[in-house]
Nucleic acid binder design. Structure first.
Lengths: 208, 208
DNA sequence: TAAATTCTCCCCCAAAAAGGGGATTTTTGC
DNA sequence: GCAAAAATCCCCTTTTTGGGGGAGAATTTA
């Protein structure tokens, strides 16, 4: 018997998941919560195998709660749930310890499969094909201006901690040039400084 | 019949995958390549459903090739392969269009399951439980000095592009304090500046 | 070939970060 | 309760970055 704990700020969603899961063999509900604080407190009192965790919570982001739960309850396997299937979310959920991802429109069979899969120690991902066949929601939405080859090269060196002068020496150009590239990237990507630039770049795969 | 194309710079690995896949029902090899350039050229000539793509290629990173293939051949589903199961890799592969992840030590059954799964439009992930149950392979290796709660808080704000002064205002302390935290983190983590700090932090899961 | 883009370099100046140092108060762990 | 760790704050100087601007050479692309 696998015990499942549900976290979602929408009571209707919680009820729906609850009724679906309770009808499934081998699964039972150990508890539910509507926010992060209640989740942490309740998890201390009830034994739970799987945490169904909504990504969009009111008081704290799903990612943060994900980390908290993993730190305090390392045995609990986390299955992220959300209404939409965004690549960036999924990758971040995985990076922060989730064992799987489920869209809210998933069928009872899918939920069952998801729980079974992650209890076997594997990742489970639920996504529709149409979303996946697009290159990336972020990249192809037109928001991301593309950096030039040289800019990416400079960016790479910046992320390694080199200063403009050091990069200039490596690329045999003037420090002013590197400075211009850096500034252009900051403007292009609409970030406030180098720190934010590096973060943006990594999160969008601009850096190796 | 699903056609599989293999990309890996190790011929032994390619041979191994080849022989395993050819024994499986419903799968056949449409081609193999040992580098990125050959991959792009060959994919133009042969019909391929699934691309088995090694993450660590000599001339170009698997991530980059992943993006290239998805742009030029959007119908091809990419299954990343690697010798080790690193969370950061997996999340980045997914963010860049891979439909799944397979460790090289995977059994024939797993390979078959992986191809079948992604042909159904779902993500497939192959990972051992022991790796997943650890917070992060890097963090628990002892190499990483742990940041304090406050330092992480400051780090988070730095990554959002805030300056010392702005962070100080948010946390109701003096800018000097934030400056000290920043310097301490740079020293602790042995990086040269804030850019490198942010990169390090993201790659080690210190930032949300 | 003409137009657009990219790459290159420079100016100014203000702001921020880095690299030293030291020092006090709070919290935390034993 | 005491020691260790964390958090707070300040001094100094130099280096680096950021925000403007302009502008010519090289390379792509239409």
């Amino acid at each position: 018997m696998t015990s499942v704990f549900i976290v979602d700020d929408h009571p209707i969603v919680v009820e729906g998941l609850k009724s679906v899961i309770e009808k499934l063999d081998g699964l039972h509900i150990s508890g539910v919560a509507y926010n992060a604080v209640d989740t942490i407190n309740l998890l201390k009192t009830v034994a739970t195998d799987v945490l169904l965790l909504d990504i969009n919570l009111p008081d704290i982001s799903g990612i943060d709660l994900c980390k908290k739960v993993r730190n305090q309850f390392p045995h609990i396997r986390i299955l992220g749930i959300s209404t939409f299937s965004e690549r960036s979310y999924i990758s971040r959920m995985i990076a922060h310890g989730a064992m799987g991802y489920l869209i809210k429109s998933a069928s009872a069979e899918e939920i069952s499969a998801a729980v079974t899969t992650i209890m076997q120690g594997k990742l489970y991902m639920s996504l529709d094909l149409e979303h996946l066949l697009r290159p990336s929601p972020v990249i192809q939405s037109g928001i991301l201006p593309n950096l030039t080859k040289r800019e990416k090269e400079v960016l790479q060196h910046i992320s390694e901690g080199l200063t403009n002068v050091q990069i200039a020496e490596k690329l045999f150009v003037s420090p002013s040039t590197i400075d211009t590239h850096r500034k252009n990237m900051i403007t292009k990507l609409e970030v406030s400084n180098t720190a934010a630039l590096i973060r943006f770049a990594i999160e969008h795969g601009l850096i190796n």
